[in-house]
Write a protein that binds this DNA or RNA. Structure first.
Lengths: 217, 217
DNA sequence: GGGGCGGTCAACCTTTTGGTTGATCCGCAC
DNA sequence: GTGCGGATCAACCAAAAGGTTGACCGCCCC
């Protein structure tokens, strides 16, 4: 089938240059186009299609400084006719990121610290319509489906979000029109599920796991 | 003086490949060696020196998955005889990172989302013994010295970082080999400067103002 | 050598938070 | 209709955090 045509999506010029160098070192890949965010990726994809140009794999970062993020872009790409497979290549292996990416239709999830050969193999797998997961990612998914009892309820997540803005129990109670006692009850449940025993580590852990956004967007 | 010899230190093979490609595209730079963490960087530096090989600039990431982190490595390099200038190239522009790097003896602080030309210029400046700061970093430092009464001291920033990881006062005290009383004193000062009155809002505000990185990143 | 500042510590008190037990109400599933 | 889980609330106690006052030391600067 000749060389594989790749669309690189990453907001860092350094990373794009690295992927380009790494993939084209052996000549089974070529870079069809580059984009710095999701919007640009969609534009490039549309442009290439009108040119009759092929894209076999989209290599997509998740964290994009500005513009459309990787998950949204992935979902948008999968809405197209005969969409190319999207392989996520990112820095973080957090639960929420992975779940969101898979739900959006990604066909793989690799980490940037992977050795070049692993990344090349993943691109090949994606192009062949197979899925490719980094070992760490696969392990995390397995451990998660085996322990659903620690999932937070929507109300608990809402509490956690207010907690992270720095509100006291009383302030949270007023905000939600419930009593302080109820807030405390929710917090105890949250701490139990997260395996912590105070609000700051709850915030730290929930931020790490991408259950909530870091304070300040 | 011929081409500049550079030591690349970054835990991501992709990023190293990108920097290599980006810097050697025009032939005023050449890569003397690469390292995936601080320990390896020191080893490479020693090895190159015994070979009589020159290193004009060390290009260093701060967040290194395993091994010695960038700040520690920078400090160690600056302890050497006739140390090469160390240019930090990282993802985050938070006050804590910047202060720590400058204190460790870094001669510049660039962000990975910078355009290639800016990075090349920064490397040239560093090699010439000048300092090179990304515009965002420079702006942050300026705003800091223009309002010194509300500026946090390095020690206070350090406390704030530990605070954000979810540690209790006692745990912070043990970590820093000081008493709990001292921790509380620092916290009162921090709250006063930030205009808050509890630890969670201090974390929220400090994250928003990019004084510290969001927990777990 | 005096003054300011950052960092350290102690004692004391108030407020907030954490943890437990037990209870009511509601919606949904079997 | 019985049972279960989520959400609500109260009372109580223990622990942690917040706030104040005052103190000492080392360092740099004028």
């Amino acid at each position: 089938m000749g060389e594989l045509r790749i669309l690189l999506v990453d907001d860092h010029p350094v990373v794009r240059a690295g992927l380009r160098a790494m993939l084209t070192e052996f000549d089974d890949f070529s870079v069809a186009a580059e984009a710095a965010d999701g919007d640009a990726a969609l534009r490039e994809l549309a442009r290439l299609r009108t040119l009759g140009d092929r894209v076999d794999v989209v290599l997509m970062d998740l964290q994009m400084g500005a513009g459309m993020d990787g998950v949204t872009a992935t979902a948008a790409i999968r809405q197209l006719d005969a969409p190319p497979p999207v392989l996520i290549l990112t820095t973080y292996d957090t639960e929420a990121d992975i779940l969101a990416a898979v739900e959006a239709g990604a066909s793989g999830y690799m980490l940037k610290d992977a050795p070049p050969e692993q990344i090349r193999q993943a691109v090949l797998s994606a192009a062949a319509g197979q899925t490719a997961l980094a070992p760490k990612v696969a392990a995390l998914l397995m451990s998660r489906i085996s322990s659903p009892e620690t999932a937070l309820t929507p109300r608990e997540v809402q509490l956690l979000e207010l907690l992270a803005t720095g509100l006291t129990n009383r302030a949270i109670a007023r905000r939600l029109f419930i009593s302080e006692a109820t807030v405390k009850t929710h917090l105890v449940h949250i701490y139990g599920k997260l395996g912590v025993d105070n609000r700051t580590s709850a915030i730290a852990l929930a931020t790490q796991r991408r259950i909530i956004r870091p304070p300040g967007q």
